[in-house]
Amino acid sequence: MDEHIERVLRLIADEPGRTTDGGGVVGTLRRLCSAAARSLPASGVGVSMMAEAGMRGVAAVSGPPYEQIEELQFTLGEGPCLDAFASRRPVLVPDLTDGATHRWPGYTAAIHEHGLRAVFAFPLQIGAARLGVLDVFRVEPGSLPASKFREALTFADVAVTTLLDGQEQAGPGAAADGLDEVMGQRAELFQAQGMVAMQLGVSLSDALVRLRAHAYTQNTPLGDVARDVTERRLTFDSDQS
């Protein structure tokens, strides 16, 4: 695990819990949003879960007003967050008065009414395996320094791992940092993801969940599991768990 991830995990761990926090993934994401809002800093942060098939919804926000603000993109069907998800890259708008009205007329007007001037949307994804978006809102217009963009992207990395853990049968925390252990073999992990998706007829995200669950239950490094798949020593069948 690298220093950037460690720092962000510490910020999330230090974030005080609230009585309204649910357990598990939702609670962790709520603390992640609050920690990100405090550290970047931002007026508010939200995480939405989205699927290719169109299923979408707000998963967590840093504070009550942002529930509705995060929901805006879905209600209006436009906004930087939806564009970030569709284009698979961050959409960073430091000043909503600067050309944004043409891109997202409805969204810009609505977000202005909430007093917000900047939106930074970071897709939660591993390549084509897309899970949602992390949105950062600020009342002041203006860019973030490079180091803060990097930090926001690291919060997004942790959100991805948290969402994957939530889907995993092995339970939360399983192989939590496994994705980081495979640095030298990352290409193989992504190839294995594609192969397993085809073997099981599931999405790329589900394929990654299965790979991680296998690594966890067999107590094998994720990189080794990926290599076994690409070299065809290991095949996933739909009838095996």
Partner: peptide
């Protein structure tokens, strides 16, 4: 990353 995933799918 998308290229690597596509390689796996086609493989």
């Amino acid at each position: 990353i998308v290229i690597e995933q596509a390689k796996g799918i086609i493989a």
